[in-house]
Design a protein around this nucleic acid. Sequence first.
DNA 1: AAGCTCGACTAAACCGGTTTAGTCCCGCCG
DNA 2: CGGCGGGACTAAACCGGTTTAGTCGAGCTT
Lengths: 354, 354
Amino acid sequence: MPIADARADDDAVAPSRVTIADVAARAGVSKGLVSFALNGRAGVSTETRDRILACADELGWTPSLRARSLSIDRSFALGLVIGRSPDVIAADPFFHAFIAGVESEFSTAGQVLVLAAVTPGRQEAVTYRGLASDRRVDGVILSDLRAGDERPALVAELGLAAVTLGRPDTDTPFPAVTIDDGAGIRTAVEHLVELGHRRIAHVAGPATMLHGHRRAEAFRAAMADAGLDGASVIETDFSANAGAEATRRLLDVSTGRRPTAIVYSNDHMALAGLAVAGRAGIPVPADLSITGFDNTELAEYVFPSLTSVATDAAAWGAVAARTLLASIAGEEPDDVELDPPRLVVRESTAVSPN
Amino acid sequence: MPIADARADDDAVAPSRVTIADVAARAGVSKGLVSFALNGRAGVSTETRDRILACADELGWTPSLRARSLSIDRSFALGLVIGRSPDVIAADPFFHAFIAGVESEFSTAGQVLVLAAVTPGRQEAVTYRGLASDRRVDGVILSDLRAGDERPALVAELGLAAVTLGRPDTDTPFPAVTIDDGAGIRTAVEHLVELGHRRIAHVAGPATMLHGHRRAEAFRAAMADAGLDGASVIETDFSANAGAEATRRLLDVSTGRRPTAIVYSNDHMALAGLAVAGRAGIPVPADLSITGFDNTELAEYVFPSLTSVATDAAAWGAVAARTLLASIAGEEPDDVELDPPRLVVRESTAVSPN
DNA sequence: AAGCTCGACTAAACCGGTTTAGTCCCGCCG
DNA sequence: CGGCGGGACTAAACCGGTTTAGTCGAGCTT
């Protein structure tokens, strides 16, 4: 009888002391029946069910996640493993919005978001194995897919549920939530072409990352469709530093051969590029047009403000979360294609100087 | 004997099937003794202990977190509740770096980071109660303290461990991890004063947020110490939009009364301010000096590059994580004061035009 | 030699749910 | 009237650890 104790009527009631057995006692039934009633299973008369629910209510009973977890072998937690080095995460505003979207869905579903950040490489598999072998999470969101990514297979082998952000180029048993970012790049290119630009360059993300690659391919295709060849593409690691460096290389040629427009694969690099141009005395947009990707908050507030491809990261997160929840609930959700990104035209793009 | 099954030698072994009972059987001892041995408790002969450990090893046993959780009443998860609206989180690069720092500590401690994002207000208490009543987490990191913040008391009442980021102005039983951001602001002001500035304004965070308030106070004090009075301070919500708006108000006065320098409470607002100045044709730093706070990646890559107060968010996260882990381990860690922030001088500050 | 303490170890309870195997009783059918 | 089916409900096992109460025997004391 461990309850007997000094404090008789403390107002700071020890939380969650009431168990299913207390409810059973009060309702005058067995533990098992209470469990049935609470889970809405057959075999309980409506009358009894109501009484049990009432008792649970009166006692303020809430189920113990721990116990539930142990018996039904679920953790009620979902994971997001961010496969980038901390610095890059730190820099990328996309993730914040994305996470906010995920969180909003999970919290209403009584699930919790477990965040694991890990540098890609050997460590990564270890992290997944850790999450899975301890069953810390019931499922994961796979982001930043790479070429030949082995993670879908790994996660499947570990028996976790998952959703991928974008369609992997490997076999996958998981639903994908995709957005046609290629279309976003194409829109940007078309916008520039309409403005009369012909020498358009692309500062791309790493080709090893699927979306980096996809955007670069979309860029090449859009250029070809516009009848422009020799599209110059510089590959980077998505960092502002790399964006600045790439821009310097692009601009450091004779004026006649210099691109009149640059399409960046994210806003951070575009902003860095804007600065490089400014420093080199090349006016934007008069002599150089620039487009970004992600439509970061800052894009609107810099000078000149940045034309950017807007993806709705929060919505993406929410949809991914819902899809994962559905998977875990045993449904087999289809792939979801999000609304295509749209180009937000601002001051950094104008008619070509030529 | 539930082990007997069709698949004799499958290489995809069902994970974590081996339980403590299996280990006990193999070592020829009781479950309880195995538990003692594994937890390094007294009452086991060294000989037996070694044998048990060897058996556990051979069987590849890993403890079930679920079961462990249930019996010792811990969740092995720590929470970070972000009390800002999603948009603001999304915009603030500080959090990414901070989270990365936290994560790195937790993961090596076998703890997991649970992220809860919630808009301040009524909801917030509910979120904390939810996390606590289900005991989803063993402790939390309290960030973004507000004036008269009721969260330390709430969290204490709920029986969670916690660490606060900064020292609350209310009574708290929890250790605080602090950084003297006031000193950062002071350094910025002193730097500007040395450059001959006398009309210096401050674009502050919300006074309801402790660090916003503290920075504003530090600004006023530093101005007073420099013999400058009538320090103008504009309060904002930390967003780029508000930063731009505040800057417009500051600059929209006759040239003779316009500030020659503006100290911003974060980089985002400073960047937006930079753009407003540029748009208004006020050259930075020739006619206007600008300083930021946080030393975001972008600060280095804009033009002119931004003088900013650098706090090491990742280190902050790591220290907060370690302190929380110590609390949970039963130690009573002291408050930790981080290295004071340092001013990174770049191009956006120069001698006063006067 | 009886009485004690102490270390090593076992059996069983326990955490708080879920789930299975029964029990009991009632009504229906042949 | 006996047998059967099935709904309502109970008792107990179970998930996989931790922890308590207790057993047993060796060694020490007086």
